[in-house]
């Protein structure tokens, strides 16, 4: 069964951060989205992904991927470093990127910002909420015939 990542971070409200946010929103489709697309395609583990901004107050990174968080947050740090560097720089309660940019801190903060979905995991994992899947436990590799 895929794992859901529902990273939800409060955005700093200072003018400098809001300016960076405006820039991210304006350039996402042209400059950020292709980089994420390429990395996720290469991973062969991510089913779906999107980034949401809510009222300029919260940013969410939501994905469904194969495997567990312990193993795959490291993929996000290594392969999408510029993206997460910008996102975390806008978030409240996050240390500097120098402090964050290691497997231990990145895992710790990513997990800390993850919001557990309501309900019970169909796999029985008590740390996970409910995630519907129309195709059961099929992985990206299964679906792509890899």
């Amino acid at each position: 069964m895929a794992t859901a990542l529902n990273m939800t971070m409060a955005l700093k409200q200072d003018p400098q951060t809001q300016a960076i946010l405006a820039q991210v929103k304006a350039t996402f489709a042209q400059s950020i989205q292709p980089a994420i697309d390429a990395a996720l395609r290469k991973s062969q583990i991510v089913h779906f992904a999107r980034v949401l901004v809510i009222d300029d107050k919260y940013i969410q990174v939501i994905t469904e991927f194969d495997g567990d968080k312990q193993q795959y947050t490291e993929f996000f740090r290594k392969e999408l470093q510029p993206v997460f560097k910008v996102i975390f720089s806008m978030a409240e309660g996050v240390p500097s990127w120098d402090e964050l940019n290691n497997s231990n801190s990145f895992y710790k903060y990513s997990k800390g910002f993850n919001v557990k979905a309501l309900g019970q995991s169909t796999s029985g994992d008590p740390d996970e909420g409910w995630l519907f899947s129309a195709y059961g436990d099929k992985t990206v590799k299964d679906l792509l015939g890899l």
Binding site: D68, Q70, Q71, N104, S105, Y107, K108, K111, S123, G124, D125, P126, D127, E128
Partner: peptide, 20 residues
């Protein structure tokens, strides 16, 4: 961080009623 958390049933695969 994983040492701090202690054993994670999902990561271990200990999800059956007999191993939880």
């Amino acid at each position: 961080a994983v040492f701090q958390e202690g054993p994670d049933a999902g990561a271990l695969g200990d999800l059956s009623p007999e191993s939880t």
